[in-house]
Design a protein around this nucleic acid. Sequence first.
DNA 1: CGTGATACCACACGAATGTGCGGTATGGAA
DNA 2: TTCCATACCGCACATTCGTGTGGTATCACG
Lengths: 215, 215
Amino acid sequence: MWYHAAMAHTPPGETRERVLAFVTERLLAGSPPTVREVQDALGFRSVGTAREHLDTLVAEGRLAKDDDGRHRGLRLPGPPRARSVLVPLLGRVQAGALTEAIEDADGHLAIETKLPADDLFALRVRGDSMAPEILADDLLVVRRQPRAEHGDVVVALVDGEATVKRLRLVRGQPELHATNPRFAPIVPDTLELLGKVIELRRSFGNSYGKRRTAR
Amino acid sequence: MWYHAAMAHTPPGETRERVLAFVTERLLAGSPPTVREVQDALGFRSVGTAREHLDTLVAEGRLAKDDDGRHRGLRLPGPPRARSVLVPLLGRVQAGALTEAIEDADGHLAIETKLPADDLFALRVRGDSMAPEILADDLLVVRRQPRAEHGDVVVALVDGEATVKRLRLVRGQPELHATNPRFAPIVPDTLELLGKVIELRRSFGNSYGKRRTAR
DNA sequence: CGTGATACCACACGAATGTGCGGTATGGAA
DNA sequence: TTCCATACCGCACATTCGTGTGGTATCACG
């Protein structure tokens, strides 16, 4: 069959990059595209064209594929990405009510971990008792566990409210220490441990393009 | 047809929870399961059974589905998750060679952002010039931009090597200040800015279950 | 000019997959 | 008891989808 000559060619490699970009975006969004979706997205009139680009990308190692003819079998190359789980961001954590607190979470954040999502929650830091290492508004990812080691940063219940402190064992007795020296150590009768902090995330707000700038 | 009575029933709702758990895990892993995969995973002998559970979950709003009969059309409910991009983790960043450095990245980490992935890279902090807010081994996500504001934490090229400092404008002149007072401010002739730090991620290693523990 | 490489189109086959329909067993409500 | 809801099985059909085969246009290189 005859078709217009003008569309027979684009700069070499350029189309392939756009195929890769499209597929990668879809994979990151969690829905592997089909060959025909690639065809439509790129405007090909033939499935075969899309397939050739995909095959080439796989051959080049820039994409990966489930072996057999599985539908939507495209994958990202390289070592499989750590499974990411949605962790609830808790607004308030109070006495015992951790389960209930999770119900009305302020939102969720995606954490790459092999731990089950049920064991994790996140909270936003209030106050500066752990400054300067941990600042107000930092996000903390916490693993629920009833015990912790000397030196761990933990979330504990003190007077029915969750607090972030460093756990120290002084003569076998657990103490909760703030980093900020303005806060005195807490020596609880019974330590109510909600979990251990496993990750910190701090955002440095976007201020690009405003006011005073340098070169 | 006749089949064994014992398998006709399980505690109400329990099976459905396992279906939901399976599907959610697969969705988070980036590969939406097929009805028959659900069937196999749960041990059903009929596709219809899996489909009924899935339909129920969708009707309850606990799962979402692409409208028509699209293959692998299961989705997570609620607002679509923020698009996450893969950001290259650079081992060494040296003079001008940012593009080349990205080629041999040490790995990638997933960042939830609306910024294009091309504008971002990540690096691991070395040294304690920004202690105690930013510590050695912290991960920094950097947005490539040639300018920054007074007060921004930036990545700049000093003597051909990337360094993290806080940008200050002193009498209109850009200076790079460490937080740690043991480091003197750098007053560069020409400021070579690689980008602005937009996020910090710190990991608090896993030590659960070892040595000294408290309740 | 011929030859190969690249990029594209057209079409068709078979397998994977979503869906529809009917049936069986159990338990609780009417 | 009857009736209905839940939970399951079995099968069949149409669509979606991956794959294979063959063809056309343009460019680069001899």
